[in-house]
């Protein structure tokens, strides 16, 4: 336990925050290890930004314990700011400075900045170093955001919804830059509402819904996804009925679904029955729940409506 605590970049216990009477965070516990890319996933209004802004020192918490790089953001904001880099959701910067000037200006705010050229190389903006900010594309501006966040050579990087509103190629650009950060050994806390983004980038992730962490794990095994039931789907010709012991349910017309936790056995039963009865199983397929399905299920369970009517 003791050694685990030492290597935690972020450690949060029982964090609560209210806006007026409405609770935004209802007791969040979370630990982010040094050097990992951690994704905080959740729908809009789940409390992602509130959570991150408390860690960054922009907001004060109502209750709970927060340690970021061993510091309390409420009590040591300046010391903390020298060691973190922040990419905010909306990205304002001076449009009339050029790329290199912008990074150099932000570098001047830090005690131990990383050399500007090195940063531009890292985010792939070396070619654009003399371009004015106002002439950059959306993806390039986002990469400049990351460059600014790297200016002070931080140990921990916050990325708040880094690709929201981007087209696929700009998203890919930004993803490549974030992947690159791993090689620097930086800890990254990323918030997103895109499942594929978390899956592609994160070592570990947590799902937040309605102010609570509802699941935590690595993308492949989140919420016991690999142990969850698979669904066998198929369509039968007119008039045919599936064998009773499979307990198949009609979806629509003659399309059926079997919810199965013994896929090999059930498939064998189904196909032997079909071969024996000379029936063609159209559209036969086996679906496992995607991370997206798990996510939707997790976030709908804690629907605020349910909370209040309980």
């Amino acid at each position: 336990m003791e050694s685990e605590r030492k290597s935690a970049a972020v450690s949060v216990q029982g964090l609560t925050k209210h806006y007026g009477k409405s609770p935004a965070l209802r007791g969040v516990d979370l630990e982010i290890r040094e050097g990992e890319i951690f994704a905080l996933l959740g729908p809009n209004g789940a409390g992602k930004t509130t959570f991150v802004e408390i860690l960054e020192g922009f907001r004060h918490r109502d209750g709970g314990e927060v340690r970021v790089l061993g510091m309390d953001p409420n009590h040591q904001p300046m010391a903390l700011k020298t060691r973190i880099g922040i990419v905010l959701q909306s990205s304002g910067m001076d449009r009339y400075l050029n790329v290199a000037e912008t990074v150099a200006m932000y570098s001047s705010y830090y005690p131990q900045p990383r050399p500007v050229d090195e940063i531009l190389e890292l985010v792939g903006l070396t070619q654009k170093r003399d371009e004015r900010v106002l002439r950059l594309s959306g993806g390039q501006q986002r990469r400049l955001d990351v460059a600014i966040a790297l200016a002070g050579n931080p140990d921990l990087l916050f990325l708040d919804e880094p690709t929201t509103g981007f087209d696929p190629s700009a998203r890919r650009e930004v993803w490549d830059v974030i992947k690159n950060l791993r090689s620097l050994g930086k800890t990254v806390l990323l918030t997103t509402h895109f499942m594929d983004e978390a899956q592609y980038l994160a070592d570990r992730l947590a799902v937040i819904a309605n102010g609570r962490i509802v699941a935590e794990g690595d993308p492949a095994t989140l919420a016991g996804r690999d142990r969850m039931r698979a669904t066998i789907r198929f369509t039968l010709p007119e008039g045919a009925r599936p064998p009773a012991h499979l307990s198949a349910e009609v979806v629509v017309g003659s399309s059926y679904e079997v919810s199965s936790d013994r896929v090999t056995q059930d498939l064998h039963d189904l196909t032997s029955w079909a071969l024996g009865s000379a029936i063609d199983l159209e559209d036969l397929r086996v679906d496992r729940p995607s991370l997206e399905d798990v996510y939707l299920e997790l976030t709908s369970e804690t629907d605020p409506y349910h909370e209040e009517t309980r």
Binding site: E56, G57, F58, M78, K81, T82, I84, I86, L88, S90, S91, G92, M93, D94, Y106, Y109, Y110, P111, I148, A151, G152
Partner: peptide, 16 residues
Amino acid sequence: QRDSGVLKRTRGTPIP
């Protein structure tokens, strides 16, 4: 600058 988020970004850096 406040509307476009420049001020908030600056607030997140150690410049007094």
